[in-house]
């Protein structure tokens, strides 16, 4: 039992790595995608739109397989499985985050920009001190939703052979002829997401000083 828990902790570390790396890259990248989605250049907007449609319209599991195998079949280039997982997750999550950012950015009243212009704020000052803080407050609930989903989605990494928490549990289950390890994994995911939700609750409370 102790050995099983140690193995599962090991898998959890891999899951957490996927989780953290995906967030580090896709949170800022999503912003650039959102900007492209709102661009006045119709070609750029069209391309970004198509990218978002593909990412949202096809299964993540398929995207994982594609990202890992396509380079090998097309140009004979193969690379590390873990890297492929991160690339696929970042591509997928950037698209979702982009749409969340867009909804937040577009919900800010025009008057806020006008007040900034009349007061003489620079574009950077306007964005970082006036617009962004308000956007963050508004998108926090939907962002939290997406981040919780990401924790659970890390289980898909095993599709291309990265042994994260769920894979470890499945292997143990077949070794032990018992479904118990699967349920233990469930508890692990639940605990991780409990912490994630509590963190989002905390930030939402912190930003609730104004409406």
């Amino acid at each position: 039992m102790q050995q099983l828990l140690l193995q599962m902790l090991d898998g959890t570390v891999t899951s957490l790595k996927v989780f953290v790396l995906t967030l580090i890259f896709s949170l800022p990248l999503g912003f650039i995608v959102a900007k492209g989605r709102m661009s006045r250049n119709f070609l750029l907007r069209g391309i970004v739109n198509l990218y978002i449609q593909i990412m949202r319209g096809t299964p993540l599991i398929l995207q994982l397989i594609f990202v890992y195998f396509a380079p090998y079949y097309v140009i004979g280039f193969s690379y590390d499985r873990f890297t492929a997982v991160i690339v696929a997750f970042v591509l997928n999550y950037s698209a979702y985050f982009a749409e969340i950012y867009r909804s937040g950015l577009q919900s800010i009243e025009k008057g806020q920009y006008e007040a900034c212009k009349v007061l003489g704020f620079s574009k950077t000052h306007t964005f970082f001190f006036i617009i962004l803080p308000q956007v963050v407050k508004r998108i926090l609930p939907s962002l939290g939703n997406e981040v919780v989903t990401l924790v659970k989605d890390t289980a898909l990494a095993q599709t291309i052979g990265v042994s994260e928490l769920f894979r470890v549990a499945q292997n143990a289950a077949s070794r032990m002829f018992s479904t118990m390890p699967i349920f233990v994994a469930g508890v692990f995911y639940f605990i991780m997401n409990y912490i994630v939700s509590k963190m989002f609750d905390f930030f939402e409370k912190k930003l609730s000083y104004y409406r």
Binding site: H125, F129, R211
Partner: peptide
Amino acid sequence: GRLTGLVFQSFNLFPHFSVLRNITEAQRAV
């Protein structure tokens, strides 16, 4: 632009700033 000031019909205050900071922000930044 610095010679002119505008008061809006819908105020357009910055909701995330205190009253004080609404008034000091542009003085400091601009």
